[in-house]
Design a protein around this nucleic acid. Sequence first.
DNA 1: TGGGGTTAT
DNA 2: ATAACCC
Length: 441
Amino acid sequence: MERAEAWAAGSSPGALEPEEPGGLPWFHDQVVPAGSSSSRVIVHVDLDCFYAQVEMISHPELKGKPLGVQQKYLVVTCNYEARELGVKKLMNVRDAKEKCPQLVLVNGEDLTRYREMSYKVTEMVEKRLEQLQSDEPSALTVSGHVYGNQPINLHDILHIRLLIGSQIAAEMREAMYNQLGLTGCAGVASNKLLAKLVSGIFKPNQQTLLLPESSQDLIHSLNHIKEMPGIGYKTTKRLEALGISSVRDLQTFSSKILEKELGISVAQRIQKLSFGEDNSPVTPSGPPQSFSEEDSFKKCSSEVEAKNKIEELLASLLNRVCQDGRKPHTIRLIIRRYSSEKHCSRESRQCAIPSHIIQKLGIGNYDVMTPMVDVLMKLFRNMVNVKMPFHLTLLSVCFCNLKALNTAKKGTIDYYLTPSLSTTSRSGKHSFKMKDIHMED
DNA sequence: TGGGGTTAT
DNA sequence: ATAACCC
């Protein structure tokens, strides 16, 4: 559910990339020079029930009590006191109250404060990372647990590097607690998959190091392929139809047939995952590529009703985009129609935002509302035949195709000097990157 | 199942 | 524009 996560990757010390222009600092992962065969040390940090932690920081009187965060009729996450009393993530409010009558619920539909805390975590991790370069060497002692209690071989350079990773993870968690009051788990391993899997071995607020020799034990400790990150709902169903349910089933299944069934890309990727192999890079997530606001409800069946809801969503979005500083060039409207089926999919329509509206975006926000709503209602009528009865259960507005602040025109010097407008100006130059913090749940 | 996000096709 | 993935 919700949590923030951070990845650090390194193979050799590298210089830090300067910040993005005009925004918060964002992390990037290390780019390994072509041809070098270096192994990686990945630190995966996983905050415990992030929303619930933020609520307990905002309302200290809630500490120690079983606390759930509610969105509509769901308890989307809860603190560990509540978990001990049987509350699960994404549990129905009714079921949760039944299991745990003392459960305290706070509404978590407005993500603003979670988002703010997430930004603080991002900034903190970045500062910590800069400082790391000048840190004193420390004793060669592992921090936290070692998966399977495997002994560390101090003559093995891979062990040593992972061990240092465990110290970095501990420092990160310490800093997060001291500066922001947040606790979390960490996993240290040689790739993202393994680091993520091992981070959950000792919970809450502990960390675990995985040595390469134990990686097969770790992946075979999964009871089902659906527990493998990267294998989601749909893929699990298709694999089950092929008789594949355990990690070993997937390892030993014919590659040829798997490729025919799932396509070469998915097949090869997930079969590698089943062996604990994952060469996917730590990707710079950078500032968000889109902003959206959504609301779900039992029923919306008139155009006026829809317009009111869209206006609300848009107003919040305009505030957020204004704070971000960049300007969206595309707007999208998403709906979910009522259906009795389980997996009701969404439909969307998008269009370019007219340039005269984009220009007004930074300054007066109310001039922008009316023309923007007009655009959105055109998209709405494109999807929904308003002359016929309809029943919607969700509306969402999304701003995307965000471009950096200025209005540089093609052919001008300014155009070529604006990083986001020219094509690949930044690739390959940075030597140290990190995935940013992102919110979940 | 909420209220978000990302990448691939 | 949709479909898959993540939480």
